[in-house]
Computed example of a mutant assay.
Amino acid sequence: MTQPESPPNLRIVWDVGRLSEWAGLLAECGQSSLTQAFGYNQAMLTVEGWRPRLGIIELEDRAIGLVVMSERRLFRLVRIARLHRGPLLRPEARRPAVFAMVMKHIRQEYPSGPLNWTAVVPEWPAGDEGAAMMRWAGFRRDRAPGYRTIWLDLRRTEAELRAGLAQKWRNALNQAARAGLVVEVDRDGRQQLPWLLEQYQADKAAKGYHGPSAKLVIRMRTGMYKDGDILLIRALKDGVPVAGILVLGHGRAATYQIGWSDALGRQTRAHNLLLWRAVQELRDQGRHWFDLGGLLPDTAPGVTAFKRGLGGEEVELIGAWR
């Protein structure tokens, strides 16, 4: 591609942002990703040793976004860096020329070479234009798969959200409402998280799917509950828990993190009821966007179909680059 028109005075200021500025920018970006939030990165540092490095993106000396790079050292010589689902830009700054220049600055800060290993999955839609911008910025496409998710716009009214549900999904929600389920909401995870993690770990081991470790989830809960970013909801049938979900907030957005149902929970469509209750809770919190998490249509078609039934917008990111 030809060089995009360079936005005047665009720069990334590294290692200077305060926590309050980080949180404020995350909220202003609207459709933020969990992986760029402070609580997530603190948990990754504690559990897996990935050190976060915050960059404030400025245009004409005004902050328009942020980017968090995760770094590790190998043998004290090789710097390994990765970026997952960033940079984040304020809506008015979400333009191709701005994105291209931000990625150019990231490439300059993290050059490719024997002592610098960098992997990025940018928060930008898939397409030829985006791929050309990445190549112009100095990145090469990686073999690793990209990322797909569904965004649910919570700024719509509850009636509009309900009308957007797939008919099968709406029928299942109505069935759950008639099943005599009792819903419990835990807004800091203190009471219900140990129970949910026990079920989640057993289910993950039995079915062999990938997901965050229990230790990482616990550390995220520790770092995020004081900010009101923990939402754990479970359903009980005749006093016995049959399903549960964990949703993590970040700025004006939230992400569906983990969920579990037993046979009775699946029979009563408890998961539909829990996700719908989560939508209501997030709207009451003032969240604008609900990220339903990664889609795996080839390996998890049932889960993918379930998430699609909520009626959000399916998005595929630009993919993995190095």
Rank of each mutant, 00 (worst) to 15 (best):
M1K: 14
P4E: 01
W22A: 00
A27D: 02
T35S: 15
M44A: 13
E48L: 04
G49E: 07
R85L: 09
L89A: 06
E92M: 00
E92K: 08
A97S: 10
P111V: 02
N116A: 12
A126F: 05
G127S: 04
A144G: 13
P145K: 12
R148L: 12
L152A: 09
D153V: 06
R156I: 00
A159F: 00
R162Y: 08
R162E: 15
G164E: 11
K168W: 05
R170Q: 12
R170W: 03
A172P: 08
A176K: 06
E184G: 09
V185E: 05
D188F: 04
G189W: 02
L196D: 02
A202M: 13
D203M: 14
P212F: 06
K215E: 14
V217M: 15
R221E: 12
T222I: 07
K226Q: 15
D229Y: 07
A235F: 01
L236F: 10
G244I: 04
G244S: 01
V247T: 15
H250S: 01
T255K: 06
T255N: 09
I258P: 02
S261Q: 13
Q267F: 00
L275G: 02
L275Y: 01
A278M: 03
G294H: 10
P297H: 09
D298P: 06
V303S: 04
R308Y: 07
L310C: 05
G319W: 00
